[in-house]
Computed example of a mutant assay.
Amino acid sequence: MTGIEQRTAQAPHLRDRTDIVLRVEELVVRFPAAAGRSVHAVSDVSFDIARGETLGLVGESGCGKSTTGRAIMQLPRPTSGHVRFAGEDLTGLDGERLRRTRTRLQMIFQDPISSLNPRRTIADIVAEGLTIWRGRRAAAEPASRQLLADVFEAVGLDLERVGERRPHQFSGGQCQRICIARSLVLEPEVLICDEPVSALDVSVQAQILNLLEDMKARYGLTMLFIAHDLAVVKNISDRIAVMYLGRICEIGGSEALYRQAAHPYTNALVESIPEPEPGVLRGAGEWDTQAELPSPLDPPGGCRYRTRCPRAEAVCAQVDPPLRPIGDDHHVACHFPVLTRTETGA
């Protein structure tokens, strides 16, 4: 049995495909806390993303989404597990090799304004990657300047007109466009978007989402899109992984997961969308979204969602349910998943 076959047997939702660009295996991130305790931020998370695909990572605040994205970039280094990019394990790289590999993975941060240096012009901010990797003289050459102008144009900004302005002179949406330009100037293969629209107005959110879709097609990007809004994630993702208290509880195709969610927590997220689409299968409002979220300092044993789940029984406290297939490219970690449309006779 090959290494990929062994990993697939242990985690059946990992696909045995030759076009997998990013594969995360058994990722664990813990942070030290007082009295010798640890914050269990990410616990045994595994997923993969194929070339040209967008994987949405969704869950409520504090579930470990952003920590997962940063751990992929090795910021911080994960406690254990593997992050394989283009067949190379990033967790085993150090120094210059890791720095050079990171140029092929870029990240857009959640707060577009605070992630920009207020003392520098936006032309300098976006060109910083070119300056570091090509040298200041090469970054000033016509070819590099044209690349910079092209990236500005791609995100809807004019380098000559606004390049000498500073971040405080732009709106939140414009600052996010600048952040996207900064992430694209080194022509990466993988783009990690950490809640890039959560701080923006709804109308601006739509503009940024459309821009990301255009950039994905234009630059041939593979994307990990992190958000807490399932409706936003559905519109941009090919597949969705649902995360709860540091673990993935369901993963599958975007449309299938949205219309026939199997995990009680995924159903809670779907039901929380203010205006559901007509024809979307809904539960009867039984999901207890008001119960207090357990602390990652002391997560519940067994299924971590059991303290808020109306379907929980004794086995849920004793056995942590593994991800198991329930359909074509659809996996759920639940002892008592929600019945599908066919099973309910709907």
Rank of each mutant, 00 (worst) to 15 (best):
L297E: 05
R218N: 10
S144K: 10
G3P: 01
H82T: 09
E189G: 14
D44M: 11
A41Q: 06
V162M: 12
G135N: 08
T8R: 10
E164W: 12
A317L: 06
T79V: 08
K216P: 00
L339E: 13
D44L: 12
T307F: 04
E141C: 06
I20Y: 03
V185M: 08
C179G: 13
C303W: 00
T2I: 05
E213I: 14
E343T: 06
V190M: 06
I108Y: 02
D328Y: 13
A33Y: 12
P294G: 02
P32I: 13
T340D: 14
R311C: 01
Q174N: 02
C193K: 06
A154R: 13
G285K: 07
Q10E: 13
G302N: 01
D124H: 12
R259Q: 13
C193W: 05
E53L: 09
R282A: 08
Q290Y: 05
V232P: 00
S61P: 03
L157Q: 12
H330M: 07
R341E: 15
G69N: 00
V24L: 12
Y265R: 08
D214M: 05
L257P: 01
V232K: 04
T101M: 11
V45N: 05
A268T: 02
R137M: 05
D94H: 14
T266Y: 06
L245K: 00
R30M: 11
V315N: 01
L221Y: 10
I132D: 00
C193V: 00
T67G: 02
D298A: 13
S46R: 04
D48S: 07
P322L: 11
D124M: 07
A9D: 08
G172T: 10
I273S: 04
R177P: 00
H168C: 09
R30C: 09
I4A: 14
T91D: 10
A41F: 05
P296T: 05
R70W: 02
S272F: 04
C303N: 06
A312S: 09
L212T: 04
P274E: 09
D214V: 04
I240F: 03
G252K: 05
Q74G: 01
T67I: 13
I122C: 02
V270T: 02
I178F: 09
V21L: 14
R15E: 14
A154W: 09
Q10F: 10
E343R: 09
R177C: 01
G56M: 08
Q169P: 07
V21E: 14
L191M: 14
A346W: 11
S237P: 04
R51D: 13
L116A: 08
L27G: 08
Q6S: 11
A143G: 03
V197G: 10
L147F: 04
G173D: 09
V39P: 06
V24P: 06
L339A: 15
A206F: 15
R166S: 03
L147R: 15
I49N: 02
I236D: 03
